[in-house]
């Protein structure tokens, strides 16, 4: 059973690569700075966020821009990739109606091309860490774990959203609202200590994306992310479950897509 699937995947590997390439190419086509924007954009927004919020939340922290950047880069990937995956089926309706292609290729390629752009943009983080003197320790290597969880979580969410949005177009607008909620509970530009004082810290415990960002920050700042089990195992479990649910939901409904696009 799996042998057949691997064979089809191999046959369409070239298509997957072409679609990933297309996503990256078209994102920056006709802009003068092109791919440089992957670096400039987070840099500029971090400057703005530091200017605005650094005053309130980061007074005693000289490395506050690095703190903001870690949160922002991970969140931007999550929001960009899930949105792209959600629209991917309808965006390729022309192809889907015409030739048979394994349909998971479309959301998968959307998540992959955003992930590549995200990996490139991590260069900015390296630069910022040097400038603000956040020097790495061995713990920096554990950063790969939250990145893996982030990829899985995004892929799972992308598969679920792409399936549902074929049947219900309003999801695109609803997801924008949900993303806003997720952003504000990710502690991107403030420290959680201020929230903990007000007793609302429980919202962070419900947000797997925040937990991933927290793990990643631990790695960047040279701390051990495994000391508090909950912050590590919760996002790991949610990521794996989201991929399983996403694949199952997608597989169950993919033959009906054609009747709705």
């Amino acid at each position: 059973m799996f042998k057949e699937q691997i064979k089809t995947f191999k046959r369409y590997r070239f298509l997957l690569r072409e679609l990933v390439k297309k996503g990256i190419k078209l994102k920056y086509r006709r802009s003068y700075l092109g791919i440089l924007w992957t670096l400039l954009e987070p840099l500029l927004t971090t400057c703005v966020l530091t200017l605005v919020f650094g005053h309130f939340f980061g007074k005693n922290d000289k490395t506050f821009p690095v703190y903001i950047l870690t949160g922002r880069l991970l969140y931007t990937f999550f929001s960009g990739a899930t949105k792209a995956a959600m629209k991917s089926i309808r965006a390729h309706a022309g192809m889907i109606k015409k030739v048979y292609v394994p349909k998971y290729i479309y959301p998968l390629s959307s998540v992959l091309f955003n992930f590549i752009i995200f990996m490139i943009s991590l260069i900015v983080l390296v630069g910022a860490a040097v400038v603000f003197k956040v020097y790495p320790t061995v713990w920096v290597f554990t950063g790969i774990v939250p990145l893996f969880m982030l990829f899985m979580l995004t892929l799972g969410a992308g598969m679920i959203l792409s399936t549902m949005s074929v049947f219900f177009r309003d999801l695109e607008y609803l997801w924008d609202v949900a993303l806003m909620l997720i952003m504000y509970t990710c502690a991107i530009f403030y420290k959680t200590e201020t929230m903990e004082k007000t007793g609302s810290a429980w919202v962070f415990r419900l947000n797997p994306l925040y937990a991933i960002i927290r793990c990643f920050r631990d790695a960047v700042y040279g701390r051990n992310m495994f000391t508090e089990g909950y912050w590590f195992w919760m996002p790991m479990a949610v990521s794996i479950v989201s991929v399983i649910v996403g694949v199952a939901l997608f597989k169950k409904n993919q033959d009906k897509f054609i009747l709705h696009i």
């Binding site: 072409e18 297309k22 022309g94 030739v99």
Partner: peptide
């Protein structure tokens, strides 16, 4: 079927040749 319906309008002819062939599984 419906020739050219799978092309990407922003892509050039050359890029579309690769894309469309990939769609056909080559």
């Amino acid at each position: 079927l419906e020739l050219g319906a799978g092309f990407d309008p922003q892509y050039t002819g050359a890029e579309n040749i690769y894309l469309y062939s990939a769609v056909l599984g080559y």
